[in-house]
Every structure is written in C-alpha cells, then in structure tokens.
C-alpha cells in the first residue's frame, strides 16, 4: 500500500497551477484534501505520474457569501464550510449535509470542491451542488469558464472538466425566501458512504408548499434534481401525510440504484423513498 512514483508539483499561483496541468495533461492529477486520491494511490488503483498540489496556491482558501451564492474556494476544507456561521445563516443545507460527510478527521482535510470535482455519486456534496443549482468555476489554459452543476456531472466519477482544467471554486445557490431544507442519509456505520441519502428544499408561503425539490446520494449514477412540486404543492404540515404515497412513488420512479455488497438495489430504492418521506415530514413540522 505504497504509491507508485510520482512527481509532486507545488505551484504557488493559479497561473502556475494551470500551466503545470496543461504541461502534464492526462498524466496529472490535482491534489487538494487527498481523502479520495491518496487511498487510491496507496492501493495503486491510480498511478498518475504527476500530482499538482494546489494546497499552496494563493487565493483558493476562502468562503464568501455574495449575492445569491455561497462561494467556496478550492482549498476550503469541509470542516470550514460546515462551521461557517456566515454560510449557515444563508444556506443551512451545507452544514446539514456536511455533518454526514465521513468523520471530523476526514472533514478536516477533505475539501468540498474536491469532493465535487471527484464526482462520486455516493458523495454528499455533488448532490448538494445540483440541489442548489451551483455554479462550478473552472480555470484552464484558455482562461476561466463556468459550468452549471446540472451539466457538470456526466457519469460516475466523470465530469465536464478537461484534463488541463482546475475547479477553482463552487458557488452554491441560495434558495428563495421561505425555503426550508433538510438532509438525511442512512449508512451501514456512521460516517460511511450512504446506502441512500436525500436532501430536500421546500419552499412554502403561508404554511403551504409552493415549490419542492430533492436530490439523492448513492441511488442515482449522476446527481440530479427531482422536482417534487407536482407532488407536494399545496400541502401543509397538517396534511403532508396524505401525500406520502405519491411522494414515495415519485422517489421510487426517480432513483436508479445499483446493488453492492452492503445493500441491494431494491433495498436502496425503498430506503431512498422512506428517507424522503420522513425528511419531508420532519422539515414541514419545523
């Protein structure tokens, strides 16, 4: 469990980082928190010849709230996002989801942006990115561009990102006024990859749902949003239970889980639907 040899690059500026990435191309891999990459290197499941370590790159380590977004830089740790009072005040969903990301020791090193760039459908933050209509800020040899989260994820561990591009930040979108959010998942052990997980955003006016959306963890091959407005519109805390059957059906039809050694596809489908039902009831009851 020792990595194959690699060249470690430690650029100090974004321009340097992008230049190195352009030079090493497909032989390179960006190292941020390393919580997925380093185990893969150690098990020799990946053997990139170059690691471009962006931890020393200036200007990537801040979380800011501006306008309609919470903007998270590429080297901000999960723990930093989780504990940001500023971020929590405008987008509590970030903390609600991050508390489910592995354990504190991993959140202390792992980065939220890195998790999104890694694009594991069992990761919480890609799911949160689509649920919040996040914008992925990317820098490459041709300059900067922005990709909507809904278009960023193209497959399991696959994204729109080119080999010579670097995600510099993610802007998570704030919800409309009157929106309440929640996140829940079920894992075999606390902190494990979830068998199924779900985040919801319910917008209500005068106690009645006007818009509702959900996104999932571990039960879709790419994170995407399920619009629950048709199912939940007009519901109130008092009569939300009457929507349960339709809600469960909607989730069951939306998700497409695969079975593995921890849970079958059928179990995960049931779990995703039940977790959503309970989460919606819980969020409505607040």
């Amino acid at each position: 469990m020792k990595p194959a040899p690699f060249v470690h690059h430690a650029p100090r500026t974004l321009d340097e980082a992008v230049a190195v990435l352009a030079e090493v191309g497909h032989d390179g891999k960006v190292l941020a928190g390393g919580q997925s990459l380093i185990p893969m290197l150690s098990m020799r499941l990946a053997a990139p010849a170059h690691l471009v370590d962006i931890n020393g790159v200036a200007g990537l380590d801040s979380l800011t709230v501006d306008g309609g977004y919470v903007r998270v830089g590429a080297t901000v740790r999960h723990r930093g996002v989780e504990r940001s009072e500023e971020g929590y005040a405008v987008l509590p969903l970030l903390r609600q989801a991050l508390l489910n990301v592995a354990h504190p020791a991993i959140r202390n090193r792992g980065t939220t942006v890195g998790s999104i760039a890694h694009a594991d459908a069992a990761g919480e933050m890609p799911s949160i990115a689509v649920l919040t209509d996040a914008v992925i800020e990317v820098r490459g040899p041709q300059g900067s561009r922005e990709i909507a989260a809904g278009e960023f994820f193209t497959g399991p561990l696959e994204t729109e990102l080119a080999a010579d591009e670097l995600v510099t930040a993610v802007r998570f979108g704030r919800f409309a006024p009157g929106t309440r959010t929640g996140f829940v998942e079920s894992a075999r052990r606390s902190g494990d990859y979830a068998m199924a997980g779900v985040g919801v955003a319910l917008t209500a006016a005068e106690g009645t749902v006007t818009a509702a959306r959900a996104s999932f963890v571990s039960v879709t091959d790419v994170p995407d949003v399920l619009d629950l407005t048709p199912v939940l519109a007009g519901a109130s805390a008092g009569d939300i239970a009457s929507r349960s059957d339709d809600l469960v059906t909607a989730v069951r039809e939306h998700v497409a889980p695969e079975g593995d050694i921890h849970a079958t596809a059928d179990y995960r489908r049931m779990l995703a639907a039940e977790l959503t039902r309970r989460l919606v009831a819980e969020v409505m009851s607040r």
Partner: peptide, 28 residues
C-alpha cells in the same frame, strides 16, 4: 451486525479494506 468476508465465486475477497469490511465504530 456488520462484519462478513465477501468472497465471489472466483475466490476474490471483495471487501478487503476497512472501507468495505465493516468493523463497528465506537458509534455502533
């Protein structure tokens, strides 16, 4: 409740890591 050695029919141990062989944490 947690631990099993998952061999496939070819004798490959499918969960030979602490990510997939589930030793209970203190929380379990």
């Amino acid at each position: 409740l947690y631990e099993r050695m998952v061999y496939d029919e070819f004798g490959q141990l499918l969960n030979a890591s602490f990510m997939d062989f589930l030793i209970p944490y203190a929380s379990e």
